[in-house]
Each structure stands twice: as C-alpha cells, then as structure tokens.
Amino acid sequence: MNITTLVFILLSVLAVGSAIMMITSKSPVNSVLWLIVVFFTISGHYILLNAQFLAIVNIIVYAGAIMVLFLFVVMLMNLNKETEPVKNYRLQLIGIVAGGALLLLIISAIMKIDAQQLVQMKVGDEGLIKSLGMNLFKNYVLPFEISSVLFLSAIIGAVVIGKKD
C-alpha cells in the first residue's frame, strides 16, 4: 500500500465520518462546523487528483463564503439550542432504510464490473489554472457570462425576498 492509497483512505474515512456527524449532531452550529470539515476533506481529494484550482475554489467559495452565510443565519435565528421538537422514529427508520438500500444497490452493481479503470493521481495538467482558464475563456465564454446574469438575479432575489414589507 503506497502513500497515495493511504491518503485516499484517510481522507475518505474523515469525509464520511464528518458527514455522518453532520446529520446526527443536535445543534445546527455543530452541523455547520462538521460540514466545513467535509468540505476540507473534499478539497484534499481535489489536491490528490491534482485539481488545484477546484481545491482552492472549493475552500474559498464553500468553506469561506457559503458556510459563513449558514453560520450567520443560524446565529441570527438563535438556533443554538435543541430545536427539533417532534420526533417520529418510524419515519426516521424508513428514511435510513431507503437511503441504505439505494447505497447497497448501486455499490453492489458497481462492484460487479470487472474492468478496471484507473484514475490519474497527483500528475496531469488539466486541473491547473492555465488549462482550465484557456478552456473556460475559449469554449465556455457564453455560459460564463450567463452565470453573471444568474448572480445578478440571485442578488436581486435575495434582497427582494429578505426585505421587510
């Protein structure tokens, strides 16, 4: 077992464990913090795949902007205490069984495949900023510009929805 496999297993265990902690922790603030841990481990996976631009963007956008927004909202609402009043254990069990059945089904279907497709690890330049930028501004200029319109509408929508009437 080489070091790449070891790092992959470590990051995967950390990601899955933090995700489970995220959906099981009582306080929403703890959930937000565990989700930030998941995002950092996914950024570690991107670095392992040599997708450096996406690793940095993942940390900046998700852990830096989106999760801070979540934390602000949680603290504005003062949800730090236990705020789940009614518990329906039957529905929870049904949800866990449904999700686990989906997981088992697809994983057993995947493990039946005999062909081995390797993934390029640690090398390759298609995840670097240069090649991504060349591709983005050569072939994907129009979606890039349209996404700015999407952001403008999101800003206007957030202001219109959030303002007191």
Binding site: A19, I20, I23, P28, V74, I94, G95, I96, A98, G100
Partner: peptide, 19 residues
C-alpha cells in the same frame, strides 16, 4: 455515492430546514 446517500438520509430524516 456514500456521501450522496448520507445527504439523502439527512434530507429524509432531519426536520430543521437549515440542516
């Protein structure tokens, strides 16, 4: 797929809209 399923289970099980 494991992470996706954990997300699905969270959507089905939790009541808090933020979570």
């Amino acid at each position: 797929l494991t992470l996706f399923t954990i997300g699905i289970i969270g959507v089905l099980v939790r009541r808090n809209a933020i979570i």
